[in-house]
């Protein structure tokens, strides 16, 4: 068929936002190659998703539905994708560069000895059909222009928010064809025991707005209770929960943190932005009480607008910021939350 296959990633039956961005990248590649886009949906209950993929650029849908595929597992999913690549030899396979997308495509690329450009920021295709991409290298300090030099199917994962999803369009739902299951349960050695979701959190890599706190969160004027243990830790945690979180809620934002705040125990590691945390690219990044060490910059320097709030006017974060507010975050953040609620009516 020689199409471009786009893996549609869903969690709890709902497509993740980055998957439509990946579908837009697949559409661009397919149009350049002059072939169609086939959306691959793995797991039961994919029929509703199938119609949605048509709105975001898919020409047809390949559906592999089996109860053994309802919880994502690399072995099971890679079995399906690898068999599909072997039988249909698509020009390219595209997915979002999420935890799952990265490992799934890397696995199938290895199984089929195919080239892979992972976590790309931009894409182009040469006259002879090889894909070329800009990727982040050296902790995001430089870009590496990487090209495919051999192989049949070219695998690509696209970084969240680097590509824009197509505007959803109407029209007939794409035709759905069934794809056979590749591995039986007895051939899969890993078993998922349980999944613990953190309630109410916004995914940092998808977020359009991020509010992050750093070491300065410990300067909470509130008195820690006598039985609090480490007063600084109590104050910072209280500040994240009762000062930063309300601002994030009013903006529909995710809460991030600097490594200093995470290492001090102010907030769990899942919130860390930076070289040994998450790399984010929101439209708006508000850094409160973060000095802006180069390792933190590695995780947020591609944010569109950076706002720095810090009491030290010499903090390096101001050199990256579009807007700087020198002062006490414990006075500025509540004032900002009130202003946002007043102006945006939230």
């Amino acid at each position: 068929m020689s199409a471009v296959i786009a893996w549609v990633e869903a969690f709890n039956g709902k497509a993740i936002p980055a998957t439509w961005e990946a579908l837009a990248a697949a559409r661009m590649l397919a149009d350049t190659f002059g072939v169609s886009v086939a959306a691959l949906i793995i797991g039961e209950g994919g029929e509703a998703l199938a119609a949605e993929t048509g709105q975001y650029g898919a020409d047809e849908v390949l559906l592999c539905a089996d109860s053994s595929l309802n919880n994502y597992r690399l072995e099971a999913y890679a079995g399906v994708l690898t068999a599909l690549v072997q039988s249909r030899q698509p020009r390219a396979v595209v997915a979002a560069a999420t935890s799952r997308g990265r490992e799934l495509l890397a696995a199938s690329a290895a199984d089929t000895d195919s080239p892979m450009l992972g976590d790309v920021l931009s894409l182009s295709v040469s006259a002879d059909g090889w894909i070329s991409a800009d990727r982040a290298g050296y902790a995001g300090k430089v870009l590496s222009e990487t090209v495919v030099v051999g192989g049949e199917t070219q695998f690509v994962t696209v970084r969240s928010r680097a590509f824009k999803a197509l505007d959803p369009k109407g029209g007939a739902a794409p035709q759905v064809s069934s794809v056979a299951l590749a591995l039986g349960e007895d051939q899969i050695v890993s078993k998922v025991e349980r999944f613990e979701t953190e309630a109410g959190t916004v995914n940092l890599t998808d977020a359009a707005v991020i509010v992050s706190g750093g070491r300065g969160m410990a300067n909470n004027p509130k008195d820690a209770p006598a039985d609090a243990g480490d007063a600084a830790v109590w104050k910072a945690r209280d500040g994240f929960a009762n000062v930063l979180q309300p601002l994030a809620d009013s903006l529909g934002a995710a809460v991030g943190a600097s490594r200093a705040a995470v290492d001090a125990g102010y907030i769990p590691y899942a919130h860390q932005v930076g070289q040994t945390g998450k790399v984010v690219a929101p439209d708006l990044y508000i850094a409160a009480g973060i000095s802006g060490a180069i390792q933190h910059q590695a995780g947020m320097r591609t944010s569109k607008i950076i706002v720095a709030i810090n009491k030290d006017k010499e903090a390096p974060i101001f050199k990256m910021a579009r807007f700087g507010l020198v002062g006490d975050l414990y006075q500025i953040i509540p004032a900002l939350t009130a202003e946002v609620k007043k102006r945006l009516g939230k």
Partner: peptide, 24 residues
């Protein structure tokens, strides 16, 4: 299968900066 053709510096950041002063 793949090759790094060249490394490139990041596009220059918008260097505009506005210091916002006053009461909180």
């Amino acid at each position: 299968r793949t090759k790094v053709v060249r490394y490139k510096n990041l596009p220059a950041r918008d260097t505009r900066f506005e210091l916002i002063e006053g009461t909180p």
